Amino acid sequence: CHSECLGNCSQPDDPTKCVACRNFYLDGRCVETCPPPYYHFQDWRCVNFSFCQDLHHKCKNSRRQGCHQYVIHNNKCIPECPSGYTMNSSNLLCTPCLGPCPKVCHLLEGEKTIDSVTSAQELRGCTVINGSLIINIRGGNNLAAELEANLGLIEEISGYLKIRRSYALVSLSFFRKLRLIRGETLEIGNYSFYALDNQNLRQLWDWSKHNLTITQGKLFFHYNPKLCLSEIHKMEEVSGTKGRQERNDIALKTNGDQASCENELLKFSYIRTSFDKILLRWEPYWPPDFRDLLGFMLFYKEAPYQNVTEFDGQDACGSNSWTVVDIDPPLRSNDPKSQNHPGWLMRGLKPWTQYAIFVKTLVTFSDERRTYGAKSDIIYVQTDATNPSVPLDPISVSNSSSQIILKWKPPSDPNGNITHYLVFWERQAEDSELFELDYCLKGLKLPSRTWSPPFESEDSQKHNQSEYEDSAGECCSCPKTDSQILKELEESSFRKTFEDYLHNVVFVPRKT
């Protein structure tokens, strides 16, 4: 048989008469490798580009789960590009990614509803959504962080984005990388972005840091009482949809009607710091009717980097990364020049730590249904340095008659930039024990000054392991946590139920 035959053949030295091919099969003959313009397919066939392209389009058009959109890589027609490569849609070739590779997620039936953290986790790592997304989240724990972890990498949506009755959302900033909504599939009414009845939605994105392009379709905003109209108009300008909307697409009466839409800028007039305090004062603000001013709200939190936005980490279910302080308005003076500047002394802060701070007014709604208010920009203030805590785990070892090696770990709280350490030492008198000992005694162990690591005695271990207080009263049991108490109650309830079950099964009433 021919060298490319495997198993047997019907005619000697003829690659077209093989029972099976050793390498690849091409047009009725066995070959060692697939010549151009053919590609290896499933490690035994040679196919042309049209064959591989037909497989790709067949799966793409069917949208069946589990099928493969075949691509070409290293002269092979394979189910998908290997790690580190992405497909070129024009020629199906796998090309190296520039940075992290995109991950295209194809949605069944063309859309997916995100109504819980669990459903959001199914899209973790996706960068391109081939379909439409509907966000409908009523509640949950730590929602802002969970949504950002699972949806934060999405850069492109081919269909539309719909935010509907998501009472738990305060902001859409968890879509931190969303840059493009194509609108290839539109919501009824030709809408590519749809926001309806979101009672706590206050911000779409921080438009000073976020760009969003909507290729096709219109915007729809109705019944978002805490979303200011200025935020919607800003989205029109940034996304390129200005002029597409009709009169009733953006409701003037049901958007922002319960919001404090600040239209003035508060400026800080005085800032002073110490290692654990920050004193702030800002310019006074009074609405047209000074009785509408209820006070100020001061927001602050630790910020290692200057990239904080107002609604980071917030949701309507209680999660809030900001510390909020309510401040009463100052006494009002008739003389504008003698107006008191409101302020606040922030206490209990960490030394040498940068804080993000902003302040906003708290006002009631005027009778004319106009909203007044003022808010400052987010500023960054760093507390002063102070003395560091003591170095940890000092170790001293003498390696000769004239040297001592000293080692330690950095302090747990540096409280500033540590530039150097101060080492103090003092000579001590020799131990009298060394002169009084009889060095001729056998088995004498000389006193040693070398360091030995501390260890816990058996008594201390027994005390720590004991669940009861000892007789001397030195140790006591740790208080039980809520989960331990709940577990004990469940076990007790189970024992009672099981005992009742045994009584009912074992003891049967005697027939009379």
Rank of each mutant, 00 (worst) to 15 (best):
322 W>Q: 03
209 K>T: 12
405 I>W: 07
160 Y>R: 06
187 E>M: 13
221 F>K: 01
385 A>F: 06
213 T>R: 12
201 L>S: 00
351 P>D: 02
293 L>H: 06
141 N>Y: 14
260 S>A: 13
194 Y>V: 13
362 L>G: 03
306 Q>H: 12
304 P>S: 06
245 Q>Y: 05
389 S>H: 09
360 K>P: 00
119 S>C: 12
163 I>Q: 00
313 G>N: 14
134 I>V: 11
266 L>V: 03
371 T>V: 08
370 R>V: 09
210 H>R: 14
113 T>R: 03
214 I>Q: 03
322 W>P: 02
247 R>V: 11
194 Y>P: 01
357 I>N: 00
350 K>R: 13
349 L>P: 01
127 T>L: 06
261 C>D: 02
237 E>C: 14
181 I>R: 00
398 S>L: 03
405 I>G: 11
172 L>D: 00
239 S>G: 13
376 S>G: 01
228 C>E: 01
275 F>Y: 04
133 L>E: 00
179 R>Q: 06
231 E>N: 02
289 D>C: 12
342 P>R: 03
212 L>T: 07
295 G>M: 15
370 R>D: 06
277 K>Y: 15
124 R>F: 03
268 F>M: 04
340 N>E: 15
319 S>T: 08
226 K>Y: 11
139 G>T: 03
194 Y>I: 13
331 L>A: 14
118 T>A: 03
319 S>N: 13
290 F>A: 09
183 G>N: 00
263 N>Q: 11
144 A>F: 15
307 N>V: 10
331 L>G: 15
255 N>H: 05
238 V>N: 07
281 R>C: 15
360 K>R: 06
142 N>Y: 03
108 L>E: 13
404 I>C: 03
161 L>Q: 00
171 S>V: 02
227 L>F: 01
121 Q>G: 04
215 T>L: 08
358 F>D: 02
383 T>G: 00
107 L>E: 04
271 I>L: 08
265 L>P: 15
329 P>F: 05
312 D>P: 10
317 C>N: 13
373 G>N: 04
251 A>N: 13
150 N>R: 08
205 W>R: 02
114 I>Q: 00
140 G>F: 06
219 L>N: 03
164 R>F: 14
254 T>E: 07
223 Y>S: 10
275 F>A: 14
322 W>I: 02
343 G>T: 15
373 G>V: 04
207 W>R: 02
379 I>V: 12
294 L>E: 08
121 Q>E: 04
198 N>R: 00
252 L>V: 14
403 Q>V: 03
346 M>L: 10
374 A>S: 06
108 L>M: 13
155 E>F: 09
352 W>V: 05
360 K>L: 03
106 H>L: 07
391 P>N: 03
142 N>D: 09
108 L>W: 14
408 W>H: 00
269 S>I: 15
171 S>H: 15
376 S>D: 00
320 N>F: 11
201 L>I: 08
255 N>G: 03
386 T>L: 13
298 L>M: 10
130 N>E: 07
303 A>E: 02
288 P>K: 05
229 L>K: 10
162 K>S: 14
244 R>P: 09
193 F>K: 00
232 I>A: 11
208 S>R: 09
253 K>S: 10
219 L>G: 04
364 T>N: 15
239 S>I: 12
236 E>F: 12
400 S>G: 09
179 R>H: 15
397 V>P: 15
253 K>D: 03
125 G>L: 12
389 S>V: 05
390 V>S: 05
338 S>P: 13
358 F>G: 15
149 A>I: 03
279 L>Y: 14
290 F>L: 06
108 L>Q: 05
352 W>D: 15
385 A>V: 03
113 T>L: 11
113 T>S: 12
188 I>C: 04
249 D>V: 11
158 S>K: 08
141 N>L: 10
391 P>V: 05
285 Y>L: 13
261 C>E: 04
228 C>Q: 03
317 C>F: 15
221 F>T: 08
103 K>R: 13
273 T>I: 10
153 L>P: 06
238 V>K: 14
279 L>H: 15
196 L>I: 13
264 E>G: 06
345 L>F: 07
180 L>S: 10
399 N>D: 15
299 F>L: 06
402 S>H: 12
342 P>G: 02
268 F>K: 00
250 I>V: 05
187 E>P: 07
389 S>P: 03
214 I>F: 11
311 F>C: 07
171 S>T: 09
141 N>S: 09
117 V>G: 14
168 A>I: 05
166 S>T: 10
107 L>Q: 04
211 N>D: 11
370 R>Q: 07
123 L>V: 11
258 Q>S: 13
308 V>H: 00
114 I>R: 00
157 I>D: 00
143 L>H: 03
164 R>M: 15
195 A>P: 00
224 N>H: 10
119 S>V: 10
194 Y>L: 09
204 L>A: 13
292 D>V: 03
118 T>V: 05
183 G>H: 02
158 S>N: 06
330 P>R: 09
338 S>W: 07
286 W>E: 05
152 G>D: 00
253 K>H: 13
227 L>D: 00
199 Q>G: 14
274 S>Y: 11
127 T>C: 06
136 N>W: 07
120 A>M: 09
170 V>E: 10
306 Q>L: 10
140 G>A: 15
230 S>W: 05
144 A>W: 04
300 Y>H: 09
274 S>G: 05
160 Y>C: 14
273 T>D: 01
129 I>M: 03
369 R>P: 05
116 S>C: 15
229 L>A: 10
236 E>P: 01
376 S>P: 02
150 N>C: 06
213 T>L: 09
384 D>R: 08
191 Y>P: 05
224 N>R: 00
157 I>T: 01
260 S>V: 09
388 P>N: 08
250 I>F: 15
189 G>V: 13
341 H>P: 11
197 D>N: 15
155 E>A: 06
289 D>F: 09
188 I>R: 14
336 P>M: 02
278 I>S: 00
403 Q>F: 05
164 R>H: 15
322 W>V: 08
326 D>I: 11
186 L>E: 07
281 R>Y: 14
138 R>W: 01
388 P>S: 07
180 L>C: 12
345 L>I: 10
273 T>H: 13
118 T>I: 06
203 Q>H: 03
272 R>L: 11
163 I>K: 02
278 I>R: 00
362 L>E: 03
282 W>R: 00
208 S>H: 04
342 P>L: 08
166 S>D: 03
114 I>K: 00
259 A>N: 02
162 K>W: 11
389 S>N: 11
334 N>L: 05
172 L>R: 00
233 H>G: 02
343 G>R: 12
403 Q>P: 00
368 E>C: 07
411 P>W: 02
353 T>F: 05
379 I>D: 00
147 L>I: 05
395 I>H: 11
129 I>S: 01
151 L>P: 00
214 I>R: 05
242 K>A: 10
243 G>V: 01
310 E>W: 06
392 L>A: 14
349 L>G: 00
268 F>P: 01
135 I>S: 00
239 S>C: 10
131 G>I: 00
212 L>H: 01
120 A>H: 10
192 S>T: 01
215 T>F: 08
344 W>N: 10
350 K>D: 03
195 A>Y: 00
153 L>R: 08
247 R>N: 04
386 T>A: 11
106 H>E: 08
260 S>F: 03
364 T>S: 15
256 G>Q: 04
232 I>F: 01
201 L>D: 00
400 S>R: 11
263 N>D: 04
296 F>V: 03
222 H>R: 09
245 Q>P: 12
295 G>F: 14
266 L>H: 00
401 S>N: 15
136 N>V: 13
207 W>S: 03
153 L>W: 14
169 L>A: 09
321 S>N: 14
333 S>L: 06
324 V>K: 01
277 K>M: 10
323 T>P: 01
299 F>M: 10
310 E>F: 03
371 T>M: 03
368 E>V: 15
236 E>W: 15
377 D>H: 06
350 K>N: 05
180 L>I: 15
407 K>M: 13
352 W>T: 13
126 C>F: 01
108 L>G: 12
304 P>N: 14
360 K>C: 07
266 L>E: 00
404 I>M: 13
277 K>N: 15
395 I>K: 11
196 L>Q: 15
305 Y>T: 09
313 G>V: 12
309 T>A: 13
368 E>M: 09
338 S>I: 10
126 C>L: 00
339 Q>M: 08
181 I>V: 13
265 L>E: 06
151 L>W: 03
228 C>I: 03
106 H>M: 13
148 E>S: 06
327 I>S: 02
163 I>S: 02
150 N>P: 05
404 I>Q: 09
135 I>Y: 01
237 E>G: 08
226 K>Q: 09
304 P>I: 11
104 V>W: 13
361 T>N: 04
324 V>Q: 06
341 H>Y: 09
358 F>Y: 10
139 G>A: 03
230 S>L: 04
392 L>N: 06
267 K>V: 12
375 K>V: 07
409 K>S: 11
377 D>K: 14
273 T>F: 06
378 I>M: 03
189 G>E: 10
264 E>R: 12
203 Q>Y: 14
140 G>P: 13
209 K>G: 11
398 S>G: 12
359 V>K: 01
245 Q>H: 04
156 E>T: 08
332 R>N: 06
152 G>V: 02
